[in-house]
């Protein structure tokens, strides 16, 4: 039963990883930018929610209404002002710029908020759970996270497939120069895509903070690696693949946690490296959707 329970918890944890991976996947699929600061954007989202709570007393759910669009706008301008220029300078420059951001954010957060955890309390939501079988309980928050992750992935898929903006994003991923010839400024399309990626990252960051009861400046480093591992395990470019990748990573971590509380991160990383060696195309082999 312990194993079954761990499996269930792992699958649900995978929802969080998939949500974290979605923004990374969008940024890479459309802009070919690997955002090394992705985890830090998640952290910033969680910090904003924590600050809104501690200074204004706004509940987490309400703060999402501001935090998510706000980081979307930040993503738009980061793309327009920094990354667009970097993209024109070659392959190294965008990486170096996002790595620079990844260094700036955690250190600034430590200086501003110390290394203490900033609490994101959710009342009893974090502890409430439903017993589904003997020894297997499903937490309400993890279930909600999984639900939101699935909805986000489905929503992103539909957005890219059915809306005009989504069409432009796929076209920009194919051939941005020709898109310009069709009267569409690809830089704005890219910026909207990065805004979307940042907004989803912020949402994922807040869910992470709720799960952990708070957020520290060091979480971004972990999160970017989790997100990246989910993307690669799932197979590059496939949105549903990130869900599969997240679940594999989540299950690996929780199963390792059954053996020893020190093992989850190491085993997660080793599973990722093993997948990399054995199946470089990832677990879900599907047509590139994004």
């Amino acid at each position: 039963m312990v194993i079954v329970n761990a499996l269930v918890q792992g699958v649900l944890l995978g929802g969080l990883f998939a949500m974290a991976a979605l923004g990374l996947s969008i940024a890479f699929g459309i802009l070919r930018v690997v955002n090394l600061a992705h985890g830090e954007i998640m952290t910033v989202g969680a910090y904003l929610a924590a600050v809104a709570l501690s200074t204004l007393g706004v509940s987490v759910w309400l703060s999402l209404l501001v935090v998510v669009p706000l980081l979307g706008v930040v993503g738009y301008w980061v793309q327009r002002l920094l990354l667009q220029r970097a993209l024109s300078l070659g392959e190294l420059a965008p990486l170096l710029v996002t790595f620079g951001i990844a260094i700036i954010i955690p250190n600034a957060l430590i200086e501003l908020f110390t290394t203490n955890k900033q609490a994101i309390p959710t009342g009893d939501l974090a502890v409430r759970s439903v017993q589904v079988a003997e020894g297997v309980r499903i937490g309400v928050l993890p279930l909600l996270t999984m639900l939101v992750a699935v909805l986000l992935i489905a929503g992103t898929q539909q957005f890219l497939a059915r809306t005009r903006a989504g069409r432009y994003m796929r076209a920009a991923a194919d051939d941005s120069e020709t898109l310009r010839l069709m009267g569409v400024d690809h830089r704005r399309v890219y910026a909207y895509a990065m805004g979307l990626a940042f907004a989803i990252a912020a949402l994922a960051g807040v869910f992470f903070g709720m799960r952990q009861g708070g957020v520290t400046p060091f979480d971004g480093q972990l999160l970017v690696l989790f997100a990246f591992e989910a993307v690669i395990i799932g197979g590059l470019g496939s949105l549903w693949g990130t869900l599969a990748g997240g679940i594999v990573l989540g299950v690996a971590q929780t199963l390792a946690g059954v053996v020893s509380p020190e093992l989850p991160l190491l085993v997660g990383n080793l599973v990722f490296l093993a997948v990399l060696v054995l199946r470089p195309t990832g677990i879900v082999r599907s047509k590139v959707v994004v």
Binding site: R164, R167, R170, A171, A173, D174, T178, L179, M182
Partner: peptide, 12 residues
């Protein structure tokens, strides 16, 4: 745009 359908190409 290779990943778009013909109709989508026209719409772009």
């Amino acid at each position: 745009f290779p990943s778009l359908t013909v109709r989508e190409n026209l719409e772009v």
